[in-house]
């Protein structure tokens, strides 16, 4: 807790719509409290802009506790800013210094077309899930939850993968605009669990191919892992690569024998 007020120079990408041209605008932001979150700082900027008769900066946000995955943009060239394992909404101004110059820019990727200012459309992620990111069990008919014991390390690994919040920072940070970390996390969460085995190989092929329809390819820079607000490991990318090759080779009628 500190009561010292900070002064920030903020350079923001402004673009009215997908088709309009965009450019940076710079604002002088005095009176920033170190206890503010980054988005609260933007709220203050927006209030001031509106009082000056200017349109506020559009940015996606919702839960503001780092779990919904709605927020996120580049802050000084890093997805979600300089603090590791932190979504933009959980980044606090105390991490910056008085007088800092911050440049913020939307995620840039073919799979994430720009909507307005800092907002991009991430529905391509939904397309990846739609192609196989689920276990096909209809409501009802599920056996007792304790019927299949799941070893704790397996459950923990699945949970590590499932922690993904779908914010898109992995794509934004990747020099290739690849969505490998998102896709592999969503896929391996299910592929690791006994419940996910029945559709494992189809899921793998379908999710990889739908991912590749919109996004680039992984060349193992590890930028995604560093940008991920949930610190999801690139180990899952390796597991996906392994499963993808296996999926091409497996005799799928023998899937019952590949129980982990």
């Amino acid at each position: 807790m500190s009561n010292a007020s900070m002064r920030i120079t903020l350079t923001v990408w402004r673009q009215a719509s997908a088709d309009a041209g965009g450019g940076f605008e710079t604002y002088d932001v005095p009176g920033v409290s170190p206890d503010m979150s980054f988005l609260e700082m933007l709220d203050v900027v927006n209030e001031r802009l509106m009082h000056d008769g200017k349109e506020p900066i559009a940015f996606d946000h919702d839960c503001r506790e780092g779990i919904c995955g709605a927020c996120g943009f580049m802050i000084n060239g890093q997805a979600h800013g300089p603090e590791r394992a932190t979504a933009t909404c959980q980044l606090h101004m105390r991490k910056f210094r008085d007088g800092d110059h911050l440049t913020i820019e939307p995620w840039r990727a073919a799979g994430f077309p720009l909507v307005k200012d800092l907002i991009v459309d991430r529905t391509a992620f939904d397309r990846i899930i739609e192609s196989g990111g689920y276990v096909s069990v209809g409501t009802g008919g599920a056996p007792d939850g304790n019927l299949i014991p799941i070893p704790k390390p397996v459950a923990d690994a699945a949970m590590d993968a499932a922690a993904c919040i779908g914010c898109g920072a992995c794509v934004a940070a990747c020099p290739n605009g690849a969505a490998q970390l998102f896709t592999s996390a969503k896929m391996q969460h299910l592929n690791l669990l006994p419940q996910g085995q029945a559709e494992r190989w189809d899921r793998t092929v379908n999710m990889v191919e739908s991912m590749e329809t919109y996004f680039g390819s992984c060349t193992n820079h590890r930028e995604c892992e560093a940008a991920c607000p949930k610190s999801i490991s690139i180990d899952f990318i390796a597991l996906m690569n392994k499963d993808y090759a296996k999926a091409q080779l497996k005799q799928r009628r023998l899937i019952g024998q590949t129980f982990p």
């Binding site: 069990v137 009802g140 599920a142 939850g145 304790n146 014991p149 704790k152 459950a155 669990l193």
Partner: peptide
């Protein structure tokens, strides 16, 4: 009780004990 069963079947990674039970 059905909700838990349904969610486990969907692959919700509920916390487990070392023996593998919920």
């Amino acid at each position: 009780v059905d909700i838990i069963d349904q969610c486990v079947a969907q692959g919700v990674p509920f916390a487990r004990e070392y023996g593998g039970l919920l």
